[in-house]
Nucleic acid binder design. Sequence first.
DNA 1: CCACTCCTGCGT
DNA 2: ACGCAGGAGTGG
Length: 273
Amino acid sequence: MPEGPEVETVRRSLAPLLVGRMFGRPVVSRQGLRTPTTSQRLRPLEGRTVSALGRHGKLLWIDVDDGQGLLVRLGMTGRVVVVAQGTAPALHTHVRIPLDDGRELRYVDARRFGEVVRFANRGERDAARARLGPDGLMLDDEGRSRAASRLRATGRSLKDALLDQAVIAGVGNIYAAEALFLARLSPFRSGSGLDDDELARLLTAVQDVLQASVARRGTSFSDYVDALGARGDNLAHLQVFQRAGEPCRACGHGVQRAVQGQRSTFWCPRCQR
DNA sequence: CCACTCCTGCGT
DNA sequence: ACGCAGGAGTGG
């Protein structure tokens, strides 16, 4: 469910609740997450104090004081929340870690496409991070050129390429569509067919739509919430995503929907070429 | 490139 | 009953 902006919103809302807190004994009540986890595997985190939270693309991590930590991927329906111990667990609560302030960190995930795994040291954490392309929320010159060369080298459609986390990390189905609209590029164009101006437009558009969404605390259309249960406000600002049949906000032409790579794609055929 | 998989829930 | 959903991996 969450893309880069939603994960960043979770990170920002979670950090003040976790940093400086000591973990109690983790309890895993359901092993069948994407990467199976057990209470035993998370046990070495007991007694450690949270030092920082980080994010790259859709990957979230929680560092503790001795170099270990947790990697969290939310998949489609994952939620990380902090609630008072004793709060009745929401349906599909799979991981609970008590904190030393009477609260508790919980991972809730109906479809179980996400995961919560312990890393033993920073090297393991960084290895997971290294499989990702540059973070779309903060594309510096080096990130732009890495993403640009990946895009230029592919014959795949722009939509498919944007969903590849090794090209640009943090873009998912919503923001791929929105960035292509902002860049006025058809989702069916191929990466290798872009000229310099189009490529620059696309990368700038990716960063702009992601940053604008973070400023609104993400897009909530069904059940995405941050660590305090608050929804994001970006839904009303979407230009094409889930607007099939509605008029393009720029030109009035009907927004189209098609299936591309097994995922829905939304675009304005008049504005996007 | 494509199809198919994991899994649950919701709207039509 | 069916199609669809914010992700990501596998195998052809």
